[in-house]
Design a protein around this nucleic acid. Sequence first.
DNA 1: ACATCAACTTTGTATGACAATCATAATCTA
DNA 2: TAGATTATGATTGTCATACAAAGTTGATGT
Lengths: 232, 232
Amino acid sequence: MNIEDLRVVANPTLVREHALEKLRGAIASGLYRPGTRLVERELCEALGVSRTSVREALRQLQSEGLIEAGPRRAIIVSVLSPDDAYDIYTLREMVETRAIRQFVAHGDPKALKRLQTIYKAIEKHAAKGDLPALAEMSGAFYEEILEGSRSKVVGETGRQLLKRVSYLRLASMSAPQRVEAGLGEWRAIVDAVCAGDADAAAKALGQHIRTARDTIVARLRDEAQGGTLRRA
Amino acid sequence: MNIEDLRVVANPTLVREHALEKLRGAIASGLYRPGTRLVERELCEALGVSRTSVREALRQLQSEGLIEAGPRRAIIVSVLSPDDAYDIYTLREMVETRAIRQFVAHGDPKALKRLQTIYKAIEKHAAKGDLPALAEMSGAFYEEILEGSRSKVVGETGRQLLKRVSYLRLASMSAPQRVEAGLGEWRAIVDAVCAGDADAAAKALGQHIRTARDTIVARLRDEAQGGTLRRA
DNA sequence: ACATCAACTTTGTATGACAATCATAATCTA
DNA sequence: TAGATTATGATTGTCATACAAAGTTGATGT
């Protein structure tokens, strides 16, 4: 271990990091919905930090694609078109599929244990019907897979994609039968990883992501349709 | 066309954007080498802008992975390990392979024309041995492929990966025989796209990226080795 | 040679200021 | 009164300062 790692606080929490996480959370949780305009002064007040910090956090969110420039210099929460969502899930499939192969290849028992623990938690929350907790745990599941690739680049790229669809997760869980079906898919993934079968794991994960993708995209198209009708 | 698009300057160049591009260019061109510490005040002077703008640009570069936090709050130009570079190229293969399939699927004659024009330019610069121009044009080649996917997400993800290895491009060109071999690979890609053969195009592009990857990774490993020896 | 302390540097953060742009409300005029 | 015009506010982009915290350097004293 490096001497640097001994520090009690390696990263003395920066205000801007804190603001960044809060804002990300607010978008992921649906507090700020896609299309919402973000006003700097309001964010400063809500977060209790200066404009300096808010602006730096915004720049970061912007390059993560979570927010974007709207008309006349306004900043709005990014709106994912159904096509965008489809593409993100398709790329996720590529990246996470690679990640899980490396996960299996490394055969780290601790990582496997963690994945099983997360799966157990998912099962529990599913039984209780606690969707928010379920959504959060499913996020942890993907994160564990990315982490298990032991590749910084794969991890970062995968996380980047995950962030952009995080706010859709809760909605997708609430589709009828989605949780029940999802449980089986997660279980298949964990089983394959346990068995050390990289091909099966990749296949199961790919299947899972494609299914999630189709659910989400169908819902987004419905919403777009409904929105149009409602507007008319 | 939307009325908004009539504006003479849709995006009245922002100072921070300008700073961002300059800094990206400085890193890509090798002016700031990996590991170099970036000092805010110096950047302000060099760019002639305020700290506010420099810092916002830095945050963006940071989340693009071009710079990273060093020890004790310093900001340094990211150092790619050979493994990181390998992974980036592998992901590029996945993403750009998908992009070129969509490129072919759309069968846009104008896009095809642009790709051919870029290839011609590459040939010319190669004949003259103008490596910097060649490096730039090869960047344009990949950009055109990503653009041709007509997918915002694929484009952004691909560009993100490209940026991170941009500073390696010039070095890779200077490997012996690399340009000659590269020419044939680019030609094969263009030919396949012309022929409307998505499989062949994807295969040729994949081959090209893997070859480039192996060249770069070998060179990075050599450097690491040499660096160690020199240091000893 | 080594420990100690002062001076300087750099980053993180906050604050205030101001131009430019856009939106809104108030006012004037036909 | 309807419509045009003007004044007023709000918001973003940018700059200039200011200051604490933490680190670095160099001078000083033993």
